[in-house]
């Protein structure tokens, strides 16, 4: 064989090898943990600069037992992987799972709650059949990420899915078990799986957390530290009084303020739960976004996930809220900061 041909063939072969080497197994150690969650840790309406509104007639309070996904360092599930300070705004949202098309996501899942729950990707081709994980058990899931899971012809470099507990979707989502799964186009990812052309990713879960439909609600009713007024009523009033329209599990501007810089390429991943009262209209003051190719400042979030790209050009502290008055008035409002 002529040397030039040998060289060409080996170059092509090495390209394939290099490409194959890029396909990674991405391992996450994620537990469902029971926590005490405060929707308003500052005990104030930080947007209007005033006290929180008085409790609704059958509202237990602002703090509830909830179950959330948290990431650990290894399979011993003894050390939490600490969330970076700049990501503290993510609140009750589970850890972000990144994958590039071709990768396999491996989730070692521990159920630390006292209820049967699981963890399952919503929307991925490989969505496995639901199988409840009993309390205290550990199960390993493998989710292959196929090309058809990745961005479509009109998407950007990454698309969003959610993962959630699928044993009883209503009760599990209202307990707080939901997180984002981001799939990046093949060849467009950094080593950590995030898209190379994006400088800052923001996770924003718009969710009406209906506590009366959480599997932990009986526990909340019975715990005097959560329910000091000993509310015991049943029915629609209890349901409505304990439904919190939240951004990442916070109301009335209590979400820590995410920072971004002027000129950065910021990608907002907009997630939503699927409760009766969900159906959101995220909107930003101060900047515009590109969503589905259109320039807008408000996005209809009727489906559970959307992506919006922002290049901030207007420094300051700005509102990000749901424009739906039924959500905005009871507190679905937060702020983000653009640094000069």
């Amino acid at each position: 064989m002529r040397p030039a041909l040998v060289f060409a063939l080996s170059a092509i072969a090495s390209l394939f090898l290099a490409h194959a080497a890029l396909a990674q197994e991405r391992i996450h150690y994620i537990a469902a943990d029971e926590v005490m969650w405060s929707y308003a840790p500052h005990h104030a309406d930080l947007i209007a600069g005033r006290p929180l509104p008085p409790l609704a007639p059958s509202q237990l309070g602002w703090v509830y037992h909830k179950a959330i996904y948290r990431e650990y360092t290894d399979a011993s599930f003894t050390k939490l992987l600490v969330r970076a300070a700049q990501d503290s705004y993510e609140g009750l949202v589970g850890p972000t799972i990144h994958a590039e098309v071709g990768d396999t996501v491996t989730v070692v899942f521990r159920n630390n709650t006292r209820f049967p729950v699981d963890i399952a990707p919503a929307g991925l081709l490989s969505r496995p059949a639901a199988a409840a994980v009993s309390p205290g058990s550990t199960v390993t899931y493998r989710w292959p990420i196929r090309a058809a899971d990745g961005p479509g012809p009109r998407d950007g470099s990454s698309v969003l899915y959610t993962y959630e507990s699928s044993v009883d979707e209503t009760k599990d989502q209202n307990a707080g078990l939901i997180g984002p799964l981001i799939v990046t186009r093949s060849g467009a990812a950094r080593a950590d799986g995030s898209p190379r052309d994006v400088d800052r990713e923001i996770i924003a879960l718009f969710s009406v957390q209906a506590e009366a439909r959480s599997f932990l609600f009986p526990r909340n009713l019975g715990d005097p530290s959560v329910n000091p007024r000993r509310i015991s009523a049943k029915g629609i009033l209890l349901d409505l009084s304990n439904a919190f329209p939240t951004l990442n599990g916070f109301v009335f501007g209590n979400m820590p303020i995410p920072d971004m810089r002027r000129g950065q390429h910021v990608r907002w991943y907009l997630l939503s739960t699927q409760n009766d009262l969900d159906g959101h209209a995220p909107t930003w003051d101060g900047q515009t976004v590109i969503s589905q190719g259109n320039r807008v400042d408000t996005v209809g979030l009727v489906t559970p996930h959307q992506v919006a790209d922002m290049v901030p050009d207007d420094p300051g502290l700005w509102l990000v809220v749901c424009e739906f008055n039924v959500h905005l008035l009871p507190g679905l409002e937060a702020r983000y900061r653009v640094l000069p």
Binding site: A281, N294, T298, V299, L301, E323, F324
Partner: peptide, 10 residues
């Protein structure tokens, strides 16, 4: 076409 609260569509 579909509109959500405060959305603007062409």
């Amino acid at each position: 076409v579909s509109l959500s609260p405060m959305t603007m569509v062409v």
